[in-house]
Design a binder for these strands. Structure first.
Lengths: 277, 277
DNA sequence: GCCGTTACATGATCTGGCTCAAATAACTGC
DNA sequence: GCAGTTATTTGAGCCAGATCATGTAACGGC
């Protein structure tokens, strides 16, 4: 059997915003180039709430008036970096939407090893989407940066989905897409080397959170070797070694908790390479 | 941080059907105990179609009259074991439902290694659920046994979802559930040993396709060491070694392409064990 | 019932990546 | 600016599991 193999998803970076880095034009920086936005932890303004709800892909189809109504159904919460939003095993009945900042989604193992499933950005949803079975969160959500999240009871959300079929379809699309992406991760964990997996994750993050800087594509969030390791099913040490190697090869420029991609084509080669050459 | 860890999903086997094994009461069988149902490859009867559509979780809420209408929208196809239903990379615009038999869902890697994402049973859907992006199948669907599948154009299906919001919600629930399960696989691949992964997959398959026999729970489908390896991200040899070991420990009884679970509690211990004891 | 084919088993060897360990370097708070 | 803390780097040894190799047993076809 010789099926078509290939990357199916778009991998353009055209959407990336170019931000004028006022600091260190000579690029020999040692300080993090990541711009951590300091959010008032306990409240996002009403304006922010509305603009976020509009930005949530779910609701982008809805008329403004409807969104204003929805707005009342949501509550807002702020969390500090590292703070848990909910724990795996807790009773699950709430759906969340990231308003600002980033949220980590992770699963814990008996061995103590945590696996980082995803890092969510503003507009992404998480938590309990459906009123299934036993109603316990299978994963833990944790603030990665300072975040503001909007929340709604799962039941209320489902009523809403019944009311607006197009919204339900959009939510389905997003969930189906996430399933595809997660299946690709399964494939990578089963068939690719750690080096390939790390290259792939860097490219993915660049696509998702990348920002053009004078040196290359800055992944606009704090990203430690350990985060990287938890995302690729390896150890901190190995992640560190691989990043060092990439840096030697001129593919990335990195420091403490930040990475700039300087050789996207090279990383793509590595991520896609068949071992058997 | 010390979050709650634990199995969230129900793991009962109460639903398993008990089938009177007419063959080899003395259980020293060498021939496969798996009962391969021989289906007319190119056609499932109209009755079968209706009863399948009713069984599909999507439509179980719908009144019979509606289902009869739906029936016209579906076409049916038969496939022989090993035959591809669609290939990754092909243009995707069709949604399928398994009517009878089992379907493998897999992804290919450049290295030639295939990863088995799931084995679907009657009532399960696969193919293109949503009209997303570039419309290429990211995975390959292949008949595992002789199968009969029903198919509908993705567009028609979406129209249908718009018409029946409760159906859309059910589809969403199923997709969300699959996402959860796939994330659990990611966790296992990242954090568990091969032995644990194989034990877990056996239990999962037992829950899904198990049938009580006089010896234990028979996984009612052909299941080779290679299938097992592709599901757990290991090699055929290692899978074989682990099964041999399980057999020595009295946890399973197995032959060529079949496995009976004789020690469910033992397997559960292994699947759940923290390495650090 | 025999033969060819296809799974499966198992030994021997090799290695990518994990573990353990210890030294630096970057940030933070004061 | 200094001290303490936390992230990163790098080395050395080790091991689970991959690879390579070979033998054997089950099954299907005729």
């Amino acid at each position: 059997m010789s099926p078509n193999i290939g990357t199916v998803w778009s991998d353009s970076i055209e959407h990336l915003t170019e931000k004028q880095t006022s600091v260190t034009a000579m690029s020999q920086h040692r300080k993090t180039p990541v711009q951590v936005e300091t959010v008032e932890p306990a409240a996002c303004s009403v304006d922010l709430r509305l603009s976020i709800l509009q930005k949530v892909p779910f609701f982008s189809d809805l008329p403004d008036a409807e969104i204003r109504t929805l707005n009342d159904q949501f509550r807002e919460y702020g969390f500090q970096p590292g703070e848990p939003i909910y724990f795996s095993g807790e009773k699950a009945a709430t759906l969340y939407v990231v308003a600002s900042g980033q949220v980590k989604l992770l699963r814990h193992s008996m061995s103590g090893q945590d696996v980082l499933l995803d890092i969510l950005k503003p507009g992404d949803y998480f938590g309990s989407l459906t009123t299934l079975a036993d109603e316990l969160y299978p994963d833990t959500a944790q603030a990665h940066t300072a975040v503001c999240v909007l929340s709604i009871q799962t039941e209320a959300f489902r009523t809403l989905l019944q009311q607006y079929p197009p919204v339900a379809l959009t939510v389905l699309d997003i969930t189906a897409r996430r399933l595809q992406e997660t299946q690709e991760i399964v494939r990578r964990l089963s068939a690719d080397s750690v080096e390939q997996r790390i290259a792939a994750v860097l490219l993915k993050l660049a696509q998702k959170l990348g920002e053009i800087s004078d040196e290359g594509i800055l992944i606009q969030m704090p990203l430690s070797r350990d985060d990287l390791a938890q995302m690729t099913g390896t150890t901190t040490e190995t992640a560190s070694r691989i990043i060092s190697q990439f840096q030697k090869e001129g593919l990335v420029h990195s420091g403490r908790k930040w990475i700039v991609i300087t050789g996207r084509p090279g990383l793509k080669m590595i991520a896609a390479a068949a071992d058997t050459v």
